[in-house]
Computed example of a mutant assay.
Amino acid sequence: MSNTMSQKAAREGLGNPELFEGGVYVTKNGVAELFVQTARERQVEEAERSRERQNNALLKLIMKAKQEAEEGNTMSPEDALQRLRAARE
């Protein structure tokens, strides 16, 4: 759960990252102006987002492969190896 604090309190607490754990909305005249979180929390959030994007990309590849297989756009393992070898030359 996120907390709120005034700009003055946020400035005074900048040396104490524990105050910002879980995220804090910094307010100006009672209106949220800024959201502050610790660097560690941000890194975890970004890693989670990256994993989600990778999972979505993998799901798209799987669905595309399934569609191609259903349409008959397949090749034998030997043909695939032959194409790979030809592409390297």
Rank of each mutant, 00 (worst) to 15 (best):
M5E: 08
M5Q: 13
Q7Y: 15
Q7E: 15
K8N: 08
K8W: 12
K8L: 11
A9M: 10
A9Y: 12
A10E: 05
R11F: 12
R11W: 14
R11A: 15
R11D: 14
R11E: 15
R11S: 15
E12Q: 15
E12D: 15
G13D: 12
G15Y: 13
N16Q: 11
N16E: 13
N16A: 13
P17N: 01
E18S: 13
E18F: 13
E18D: 09
E18N: 12
L19T: 14
L19A: 10
F20N: 08
E21A: 13
G23W: 02
V24Y: 06
V24W: 14
V24Q: 10
Y25W: 08
Y25C: 11
T27A: 12
T27W: 11
G30M: 10
V31C: 05
V31D: 11
A32G: 15
A32M: 09
E33I: 10
E33T: 14
L34D: 07
V36I: 11
Q37A: 06
T38P: 00
T38C: 03
T38R: 03
T38W: 00
R40F: 05
R40D: 05
R40G: 05
R42Q: 07
Q43W: 06
Q43C: 13
Q43G: 13
Q43I: 10
Q43Y: 11
V44A: 11
E45F: 03
E45I: 01
E46R: 15
E46Q: 13
A47S: 10
A47I: 13
A47Q: 09
A47E: 08
E48F: 10
E48W: 09
E48T: 12
R49H: 10
R49V: 00
R49E: 12
R49P: 05
S50A: 09
S50I: 13
S50L: 09
R51H: 01
E52K: 08
E52G: 00
E52M: 02
R53C: 02
R53A: 04
Q54T: 02
N55S: 11
N56F: 03
A57D: 07
A57Q: 06
A57C: 05
L59M: 09
L59V: 10
L59E: 02
K60F: 12
K60C: 04
K60G: 08
I62M: 04
I62G: 00
I62S: 01
M63T: 08
M63E: 07
M63D: 05
K64A: 12
K64G: 11
A65H: 03
A65M: 08
A65D: 07
A65L: 03
K66F: 02
Q67M: 03
Q67R: 05
Q67P: 06
Q67H: 00
E68M: 03
A69I: 00
A69Y: 00
A69D: 02
E70F: 04
E70L: 01
E70M: 04
E71L: 10
E71K: 00
G72V: 01
G72N: 04
G72A: 03
N73T: 03
N73A: 05
T74P: 00
T74W: 03
T74Y: 00
T74Q: 00
M75F: 06
S76Q: 00
S76C: 02
P77R: 02
E78I: 03
E78H: 02
E78R: 02
E78A: 09
A80M: 05
A80G: 01
L81C: 07
L81P: 02
L81Q: 12
L81T: 05
Q82C: 11
Q82K: 15
R83D: 14
L84D: 07
R85T: 03
A86T: 06
A87R: 04
A87P: 04
A87H: 08
